[in-house]
């Protein structure tokens, strides 16, 4: 489930509020978005992918809250990790284009 909106990283663009398919976040006037309906999070990681500044952390566990701290997530290098692998963000190439996409099918045919 979504666990962290990093206060130090978030720029209040509210994109996560818009793109979350299950309406988990609420916009806050003059502040950063809040996780308002955490149990509605389906753990699809889409908010992380759309966040332009890697300020969100979704824990893989869809049923339990792990209470990881922002510091832990930072130290483990988990902020933005998925977006990087998908190849979204300035100067990156989308993974969709990666040669391995074809090579796997050629090898496992």
């Amino acid at each position: 489930m979504i666990e962290i909106v990093s206060e130090s990283k978030c720029i209040s663009c509210n994109l996560c509020v818009s793109v979350c398919p299950t309406n988990v976040f609420d916009k806050v006037e003059g502040g950063i978005p809040v996780i308002a309906r955490q149990s509605d999070c389906q753990t699809c990681f889409m908010c992380e992918l759309y966040c332009p500044v890697d300020a969100l952390y979704v824990d893989p566990n869809p049923e339990q809250i792990t209470l990881k701290s922002e510091e832990d997530v930072e130290n483990l290098g988990l902020f933005g990790g998925y977006r990087e692998k998908v190849g979204w963000g300035k100067g990156r190439t989308p993974v969709a284009k990666h040669d391995y996409m074809y090579q796997l099918s050629a090898k496992t045919r």
Partner: peptide, 16 residues
């Protein structure tokens, strides 16, 4: 490595 690229999200929970 090919599997890792083809389904990026499959590995996400394990990596984390």
């Amino acid at each position: 490595p090919l599997l890792r690229v083809n389904q990026t999200n499959f590995f996400l929970p394990f990596d984390r």
